[in-house]
Deep mutational scan, measured.
Amino acid sequence: SKICLVCGDEASGCHYGVVTCGSCKVFFKRAVEGQHNYLCAGRNDCIIDKIRRKNCPACRLQKCLQAGMNLGARKS
């Protein structure tokens, strides 16, 4: 099975251009559409994995963007 390129959980498919799990898919959509201005309490290098993905939305969003997630991406 495929793994989420953001948190490493089991992926549910290709979302916004990137193979991700459902949790990261929903997080990314809400983060971008809600125009959240997340700030990292650390050094913008928090570990984002299945267990810690909820700890720092700033670093999670950064990881989504680095993976290439794009709200305008067509479903493939």
Rank of each mutant, 00 (worst) to 15 (best):
S1I: 11
S1G: 07
K2I: 10
K2A: 08
K2G: 04
I3W: 03
I3A: 04
I3S: 05
I3R: 03
I3L: 03
C4S: 01
L5S: 08
V6K: 01
C7Y: 01
C7P: 00
G8L: 08
D9N: 05
E10P: 06
E10T: 11
A11V: 03
A11H: 05
S12D: 03
S12P: 13
S12C: 05
S12R: 13
G13I: 05
G13A: 06
C14T: 07
H15P: 08
H15D: 06
H15I: 05
Y16D: 11
Y16K: 08
G17K: 09
G17C: 10
G17F: 05
V19F: 15
C21W: 00
C21N: 02
G22M: 11
G22E: 12
G22D: 13
S23Q: 12
S23G: 13
S23A: 05
S23H: 05
C24N: 02
K25S: 11
K25I: 08
K25Y: 07
V26E: 12
V26W: 13
F27L: 01
F27V: 02
F27I: 02
F28C: 02
K29P: 08
K29A: 14
K29H: 13
K29G: 10
K29V: 07
A31L: 02
A31G: 13
V32C: 06
E33T: 10
E33L: 06
E33R: 11
E33V: 12
G34T: 09
G34A: 06
G34R: 14
Q35N: 09
H36I: 12
H36D: 13
N37Y: 07
N37E: 15
Y38S: 10
Y38L: 09
Y38R: 07
Y38E: 06
Y38A: 11
L39R: 12
L39S: 10
L39T: 08
L39K: 13
C40P: 00
C40D: 01
C40W: 01
C40K: 01
A41K: 05
G42T: 06
G42M: 15
R43V: 11
R43I: 11
R43D: 11
C46W: 00
C46P: 00
C46D: 01
C46G: 02
I47G: 07
I48N: 12
D49H: 03
D49T: 13
D49V: 03
I51C: 09
I51W: 04
R52H: 09
R52N: 14
R53D: 11
R53I: 07
R53N: 08
K54I: 12
K54C: 04
N55Q: 14
P57N: 12
P57M: 14
P57T: 07
A58F: 07
A58K: 10
A58V: 02
C59T: 01
K63W: 04
K63P: 01
K63S: 06
K63Q: 05
C64R: 00
C64F: 02
L65H: 15
Q66V: 10
Q66C: 11
A67Q: 04
G68N: 04
G68R: 04
G68L: 02
G68K: 03
G68M: 04
M69W: 02
N70M: 10
N70W: 07
N70E: 11
G72F: 05
G72W: 05
G72R: 08
G72L: 12
G72K: 10
R74G: 12
S76P: 13
